[in-house]
Amino acid sequence: MTDVLIVGSGPTGLTLACGLALNGVDVRVVDQRPGPHRESRGKSLNASSLRVLEQLGVAARMTAIGTADLVFRKYFDGAHISDTPFTDALFLGQWQIEEVLRERLAELGVRVEYGTAITGIHQDPDGVTARPAGGPALRSRYLAGCDGGRSTTRELLDIPFEGSTEERSVMVLGDVSAPGLSREYWHQWFTSDGAAMLLCPIPGTDSFQLQASRELDPDGEPLPPSLESFQRLFDRHARMSGIELADPTWMSTWRVNVRMAARLRQGRVFLAGDAGHVHPIAGGRGMNTGVEDAAALGRALTAALSAPSGTVPEEFLARYEAERLPVAAELLADTTERLERVLAAVREPGRGTEAALR
């Protein structure tokens, strides 16, 4: 029987796995995806996350890849208005963060088992049985659902995901190259009508992460993300001739979700990261909060597994939810307020996403 089965191999699941393995816990990590992704997604680590990663022995590797000196270059109605240096975070793509954590986990003797989708979870007094879509059942003493906002773990446990979701997505995202555009800046174009386009360089690559207001068709309906649409949005906002976006390796949409799980624990099963809470992206707190969740859950499970044989260390297990559920509630309120602050700020020339960080 495995000590802890972790479902999901994003930053939350990998941080938890590395922390447990370092403490001698027998851990297994499964993921329904066929393999690793190369999408920038969450792209910054704050000081708290870096302290957690330093304890895992990977902070220096992250620092070697990322950049801590990024200038926010802001434009308004096409004109360059101001530059704002920012040094309070380490910027790098989420796929790069996951790659370093996977390498560290492999050094600790654990590899992610891809292509393993969990379709059932059953608990008994001695442990948890997880049923994959194919293959034998997976038996563990505890299970951690770190499988994102659409968490299968949360759904199988029938834990309510309370809050609200906007019906229409408001932003398109992607990873593209932009030959000829300076990679020394996070370019942020805003217009007097509140629309925006942002291109943030992903270090060590030729890619920028693109974030932009949705393009609408003649009937006012959002168009799906595409390279052609990205180019039209760029031309409209940047008004720079000779820059052709290319090499799209990721395209997606984003809508405002403000939700949290009614509980982060059900018996021997726990939720962490986006599986337990989703919220506005303003302030870059999502991935970082997941890393902090993983550190707290790792402490609780390590303590529980170190308790005398034959006992149920309830006080250690209860500690995780007691610590992190209030954090999730504060997170939703804080990021909602930050988003409102940014939406107001970007209508003023010279202001940008840094409004969410103050």
Rank of each mutant, 00 (worst) to 15 (best):
T153P: 11
G93R: 02
R111T: 10
V128D: 01
Q123W: 03
V58H: 09
R139K: 13
T116W: 05
M62Y: 15
A133D: 15
C146P: 13
L92K: 02
V176F: 15
L181D: 13
L138Y: 09
V100M: 04
N46A: 02
W186N: 11
G127I: 00
L105E: 10
D147W: 11
S164C: 04
E98A: 00
E155I: 00
V170I: 11
G134N: 14
R104N: 07
A64W: 13
L90I: 03
G93F: 06
A130Q: 05
R61K: 15
V172A: 12
E98H: 03
G57P: 12
P160D: 03
F76S: 05
S82P: 03
G78F: 01
I65N: 11
L181K: 05
A137I: 02
A59W: 13
R183K: 15
L70M: 15
V58F: 10
D69W: 06
S49N: 05
E98K: 03
A60S: 15
G57I: 09
D158W: 02
G109E: 08
L156A: 09
G127R: 00
P85Q: 00
W95M: 01
S182V: 03
E162Q: 14
V172K: 05
I81D: 03
L45Q: 12
S82Y: 04
L56T: 07
R104T: 02
T84H: 09
L90R: 04
